[in-house]
Amino acid sequence: MEIYDGEFIAELEAIAKRVRSHSITMIYRAGSGHPGGSLSGVDIMVALYFHVMKHDSKRPDWPERDRFVLSKGHAAPALYAVLAEAKYFPEKELETLRKLGSRLQGHPCMRKTPGVEMSTGSLGHGLAAGNGMALAAKLDRKLYRIYVLCGDGEMDVGETWEAAMLASHYKLDNITAYIDRNKLQLDGPTEKIMSLEPLADKWKAFGWHVIEINGHSMKEIIQATNEAKGVKGRPTAIICHTIKGKGVSYMEGSLHFHGKAPTDEEYKQAMKELGGTDR
């Protein structure tokens, strides 16, 4: 299969590395933001935007496009970097993150940023909004699909489970939820703050088809997504085992970098590791 072809995967991985580098640079320049959760979700977003999804950056409102909802809106830097890589707006604009007057708000705003499908930031809304899009697709007999990226901390939110129920009730086989299972939320490890396990069983009990993968493997992300496309009559949840801060050694598994910008020194180190230019 060409999609598992080494060169092809390497290409996606190269994009992911650039997205990581951009994300950290943006947060560094802004002086605030969420590096940890941005980095853990990068590979999923890159696989979706650069392989899985039908979309066209020249026509962000193309009715047939697949939709991506970043439910964990604080990972906005990664989404913006992906959108810039996909040419929704110039890469230069990434510098404006969180600045007054910027189209790149601290959390995604669908009225400001081309390519952003839903305004998010308050956790726990994205899956339900994705369901709405999935219902609309069914009503309009459209074939586009909905992809939602949730944080594992978002599994604390009651609405996540209300949405889980609704999706299976309405047999929404056109929506796929990716759960960024980095095992950390803001105050600490998920299992210490609010235990989630057995998480896969919970989703199964809510009527979802469940797949567990390494969320940093392009191959596994793509395979699981293809499997989800084949599932009829129910939605699919892909539990993506990830590492918060993935790609920057001192951010990996770190609570500190949930919501802190790197210092000058830390930034230099990150750029070394990500092969970005030290700007």
Binding site: A30, G31, S32, G33, G73, R98, Q105, G106, H107, C109, S119, T120, G121, S122
Partner: peptide, 8 residues
């Protein structure tokens, strides 16, 4: 709140 934006 500053940088987080309107959502927050």
């Amino acid at each position: 709140v500053g940088g987080d934006g309107a959502s927050h």
